[in-house]
Design a binder for these strands. Structure first.
Lengths: 324, 324
DNA sequence: CGATTTCATGTTATCGTTACCACTTTGGGT
DNA sequence: ACCCAAAGTGGTAACGATAACATGAAATCG
């Protein structure tokens, strides 16, 4: 427009110069670039995307940005996407299907190149319908137990729960407790609990559950719930926490109550965040390759192919909170 | 289009129904909604924004999503923006002005309703030029020492550094050290150091600096740098860390080396993240109201007015790592 | 030296929506 | 019976870019 006039060429030529397509003489190219810079001109991406029928946007929906787990995955996604010239449009669902539905519409209205959704919630029928109609390629993250959409990259949370139980059982610990929060919404965490409890009960153990659906899944809640647990009666032999943050809070409560860890009670967290580096204690936890999940999900998004399920492995990170 | 045909009305009527504008009879409205739902129709937001010359997008540029500090601010922003129907387009600058320049262009090309940038980096001239030409309202976050753009919401990092120094000085501690990372890029952290050092030297103290510009600002780096510091010679009386994560790492190194905290060495972190809840120790730190900064920035963005600087206060969170 | 190819640029139609106004009907009010 | 407001709906022309093709000039060729 203005740029074209100022450079004495047609809008078409400006478009070509700015995108580096077509054959433009060096002189013209330099002149247009100069004028565009001087004018502080930024092409209207809305018009460009509308016209070319494709935006370089990828939609990413995660439960919460504040949760280190998902921001770790996000970093992995961006590490793949950004170098290829995509920008990511991030939305927070807070585990709420209605929220997800709203965000899916918002993102789809931007005609994205692809969509990455997080599993672990009960997607509404409307959401699925809209996704399918859009024709946009969709990848599901995180929940590997129930693959969905065009591809899935995640882990088996049920298996993770069983693995935690196995660690306890191998130490002869059978009286366990699972401490979490928001299990009503976070179906992945619920499935970890399920695996954990199943495995324990198969081996003749038992598993209490302490969870509050209204509290955040952080250090403070971990401490409060554990304190409540200890007030009820004698401490369990083993506690598995929903995440590392809650586990750290739990350890505070245990130590405050004089419960020896791991002498009296063993503790396992989940996810291997930086919180596991507690000062004196080192939390035993299951580590999930967050960055890798993100990177592989981004790759799965970019290379169209048949529906595929890509299960990543978690690792046991040995700390000092489980007895030998 | 298809919806209009299927409902037997004009595209114009569909547009009105879906946006809830204009006068449409109840019967028509219901029929159109029904058809749209059945078809899984999502309006093309690109075309809509192009036509109406306004998108409901707000651009937010922060150094890193993985850093709890900025994701805390982000939460505050979203708490204000999302209920008003805005969606946020988030970009990560990693403290790099060129990255910021690229992202600013990307966001502006989406014709956003507003832009929230994080201060603490040397913005390029081109970025400033493009921002001004765009006419989009811009708010600067975080860096309150050097207000910029249409409004600024943040804190004085210099004052925060001085406050940390004052705490040490009031305990008679004069031999201090500042431990950080990436001070070349993060000008806010550099300014905290400056305030810290100035205040100490005014009072006849001294301040060593230990920083590595290549390492991440996390627990592991905090531990490594502190271990290096202790290997060099006797421990300083006081250490101020760039953030809580590094401080926690530092405490590990100090305890591992048998340095009594706070008996021999006192420690102050910065930012009051959940990491401060270490298991036995409770880190003394300066707490910044992250959520509030975000919320106020979002409000400043929405209510146009003259350029304003909104300085928030930090608080000293007493822990057990500074001697009485 | 005419025919063909290459290079550099311009023309036109289109993407899907909305702003703005025009149009038809209906239901009073006088 | 006539007029006028309100209610409901549709037509038209943007919005700013690009895909696809068209054009003219310069270069190459047999």
């Amino acid at each position: 427009m203005t740029v074209a006039a100022a450079a004495g060429v047609s809008p078409m030529t400006v478009s070509k110069v700015l995108r580096g397509t077509g054959r433009i003489s060096l002189a013209t190219r330099q002149r247009v670039m100069q004028v565009a810079d001087d004018l502080g001109y930024v092409p209207n991406g809305l018009a460009g995307a509308l016209s070319s029928q494709s935006s370089q946007i990828v939609g990413i929906l995660i439960p919460s940005i504040g949760d280190m787990v998902y921001s770790g995955v996000l970093a992995g996604i961006n590490a793949v996407l950004v170098p290829k010239g995509f920008s990511s449009f991030i939305g927070e669902t807070f585990f709420d299907p209605e929220n997800e539905a709203r965000l899916v519409r918002t993102v789809l209205s931007l005609k994205p190149s692809g969509l990455i959704l997080t599993g672990g919630l009960e997607r509404t029928g409307a959401t699925m319908h809209v996704l399918r109609q859009s024709g946009v390629r969709c990848v599901q993250l995180w929940d590997g137990d129930r693959p969905d959409l065009d591809a899935t990259v995640g882990l088996s949370h049920r298996a993770a729960g069983r693995a935690a139980a196995d660690i306890f059982l191998s130490r002869g610990l059978r009286d366990a407790c699972y401490v979490g929060a928001q299990l009503d919404r976070d179906l992945c965490a619920a499935r970890r609990l399920e695996g954990f409890r199943q495995r324990l009960e198969e081996a003749g153990g038992r598993c209490r559950v302490l969870a509050d659906d209204a509290l955040p899944r952080d250090v403070v809640t971990g401490e409060a719930l554990t304190a409540a647990l200890l007030a009820e009666g004698p401490p369990p032999e083993a506690i598995h926490y929903l995440n590392d943050a809650m586990a750290i809070g739990g350890l505070r409560a245990l130590l405050a109550a004089g419960v020896e860890v791991p002498g009296r009670t063993s503790v396992i967290g989940f996810n291997g965040t930086s919180l596991r580096h507690a000062i004196q204690t080192r939390l035993t936890t299951l580590e999930v390759p967050l960055h890798e999940i993100g990177a592989r999900a981004a790759q799965a998004l970019l290379q169209p192919g048949e529906a595929r399920t890509d299960l990543v492995d978690f690792q046991i990170v040995a700390g000092t909170t489980v007895r030998p």
